[in-house]
Design a protein around this nucleic acid. Sequence first.
DNA 1: TCTGGGGTCCTAGGACCC
DNA 2: TCTGGGGTCCTAGGACCC
Length: 460
Amino acid sequence: MSKLEHPSSPLKAEDTDSFEAVFGLPLPAFKPHPQDGISRHDPSLGAPEAWPQTPGFKRRIAHLDMDAFYASVELLRYPQLKGLPVVIGGGKKSLLKQLNGVDPADWDANTPLHQFPQLKSYAGRGVITTATYAARSFGVGSAMGLMKAAQLCPQAYLLPVDFDQYRHYSQRFKEIILEICPVMQNTGVDEVYLDFTHVPGGQRENGLSMAKLIQRSIFQATGLTCSIGVAPNKLLAKMASEFNKPNGISILLEGDLQSRIWPLPCKKVNGIGPKADEKLKSLGILSIGDLATRSLDTLIASFGKKYGAWLYSVARGQDDRPLETHSDPVSMSRETTFERNLLVAKDRQELGEIFTRLCTQVSLDLQRKNLKGKTVGVKIKFDNFKTVTRDQTLEVAIDQAQDIRHTASQCLKRIDLTRRFRLLGVRVSSLEPKTLDAQDPQASGASRSRPVQANWLGES
DNA sequence: TCTGGGGTCCTAGGACCC
DNA sequence: TCTGGGGTCCTAGGACCC
C-alpha cells in the first residue's frame, strides 16, 4: 500500500486531455472530488453505456472478485469466528436450530462460540456455498457435500445462507465502484467487470492506480476485501483476478500471454468446464499453451465450429466482447431438493404443498420485478440423478400463481412419475415486462380460460 | 450419508411457413 | 415422386457459471 498514487497525486494532464481530444467535451460526467481532487463520476449526469473504441487508447478491462464473499460478510457480523474454519451451508435453518437449540436469529457479535453449530453435529443433505480461507485449508470448498466436508473438517462452524444480507453488501460495493468507474458489467452478487479505458486515471500504471483506488474504497466502506485483475479484455482480466487472491491486484499486458497464461491448465478459462477439460486432456491438451499449438481446423473437427473456433482464440488471449451494462432477465425459477426422496403415489399431499409453494414463489419473484412470462416449465431430478424437463408456451404471458401452477401441472403430467425423485422445480421463461395497463383484458385471460379439472395431484 | 439453487447459452430436431 | 431452401418458433437436454 506504500506506493499508492491515489488519492494524493493530482490527475495528470494526459488523462483528461486525451479524453477531451476524443470526445470534444470536457469530461462531462466527471468532476474532481472535494476530498482528494480525483475526478469521480457524477451519477446525476448519467453514465455512458460503454466507451467508444478509440485508437490510441489501450483497452484496460478489469475483473473484480470479492474474496470469499458470503463468508466474509458473515465474519463482519460474527467477528468472534475470524480466523476459524467456517462454512456457509445449504442446510435447512430448522436443522441448524436443532443442533444446539439456539436460533440463528439470536446470534450476534457476542454469541459464544459453543452456540454456533459445527459440521460434526450435522446430519442431512446440503452442500457448501462458501468457506472461509481457514476452512479451505482443510480441503473443503464450494459445492462439496456437507457430510463429506464434516469428515475433512468436523470442527468447522456451519452457518446458514442469508441472501438478503449478501445482496445488501453486493449493492453497497457496486455503488462504491460506480462512483469511480461508471462502465460496469454485473456478473453475479460478488463480481463485476469494469472498463477503465477512458476513465480519468484509468490508464495510469496500466490500471494499477485505479485498481488500488477501488480496492481501498471498497474496504474502507464495507470492511470487505476483493481481488482485481486488469488486462486487455474480459477473458484475460477474469483469469488475472485469480492470480493474487485474496486482496490482490494483477496487471496483465499483451506480452504476458506466453509467460503467465499459457502455463495454466485449460480449466482456468471461463467457459471450459469439466466436460470440455476431460476431452481436451484426452487429446493431450493439458495447458492453454498446449491448446495454442493446435490448428483451427483440428479444434473445429474435435469441438464443432463455434466452440472449436472459440477455443482457438482463447489460446491466443483474444476476446473482443464488450461489457454489457444492461441485461434483461430471461427466466425465473424456483426449485427445491427434498429432505428425502419422494414418490407421487405415497407423498401426494406433501408434494402438492411443495409444488404450490414453488409456483407462489416464482409468481412473487415475477411480480416483484414487474415481469410475466409465456413459457412455463417443470424440472424433476430422479433418485438416480437423471433430470428431465417439460415446458409449454402459452398464448399470453402470465404471472399469477394459480395460472403458473395450472400450466406446470400440465407439464408434470407428461413425465412418468412412478419413480422416486429428489428435486422439483418450476420455471417461467419468455419473459416480458408487465404492462401497467390495468384495463388490459388479457392480463387475466389465462386465469379465466382455465378449465376446472383434476390435475396431476388429484386436486381441483 | 455422495452430489444446492438460480441462472445463461447452445444444439438439434420437428413443425410450420413462404 | 430423388434430397429445395430459407426462416422462425417450440421443445428437451446439456454444459457451464456463480
